[in-house]
Amino acid sequence: MFAKGQSGNPKGRKPGTPNKATRTVRETFEAVFVSLQSSDKASLRVWAEANPSDFYKLSTKLMPVQVRAEIDHRAELSNTDRAARLASLLARVAAREAEAEAPKAQSTGSAQSAFGQR
């Protein structure tokens, strides 16, 4: 048997690399999506404008949870400024969480019907 964490093919695909079928499906889906965006009736933009609440709920689910940031240590902030920035950030996070947990009954069917339009 192999040691824990080792595969039978040490020169094989690296972890996290999609296989050929997954990559092909993603590329095909992207090509179809891009071609649909040229339509004035079935684009994501048109649906988003007609359903802004549903669009923002969906977009928050597609955004990465982890965000990388660089901090400028040269900028000295007072404790008051730090507290104000932290409060603002926490309010934005709470608002996104509240939107994500809103009842799904309101959006049932609207996203499905938008993609079925021609």
Rank of each mutant, 00 (worst) to 15 (best):
M1I: 00
M1C: 00
F2H: 01
K4L: 06
Q6V: 02
G8R: 02
K11H: 03
G12P: 01
P15G: 02
G16S: 08
R23G: 02
R23C: 01
T24C: 01
T24V: 02
V25C: 03
V25R: 10
R26N: 04
E27T: 14
F29I: 03
F29K: 07
F33K: 04
V34S: 01
L36T: 01
Q37S: 06
S38V: 13
S39K: 05
K41D: 09
L44A: 12
L44M: 09
P52D: 07
P52N: 08
S53D: 10
F55Q: 02
Y56K: 12
Y56F: 11
L58D: 03
S59Y: 09
S59V: 12
S59A: 14
M63P: 00
M63R: 10
P64F: 06
V65A: 12
Q66N: 12
A69G: 12
E70A: 14
D72V: 06
D72H: 13
A75N: 13
L77P: 01
S78Q: 09
N79D: 15
T80C: 04
D81R: 14
R82I: 13
R82N: 05
A83R: 12
R85P: 00
R85Q: 07
L86V: 11
A87D: 12
S88R: 15
L89Y: 14
A91R: 10
R92P: 00
R92M: 06
R92I: 11
A95R: 10
A100R: 11
A102I: 11
P103D: 13
K104E: 08
A105P: 03
Q106N: 08
G109M: 11
G109N: 08
Q112W: 08
S113T: 13
A114M: 05
F115E: 05
F115Y: 08
G116C: 07
G116A: 13
Q117K: 15
R118N: 09
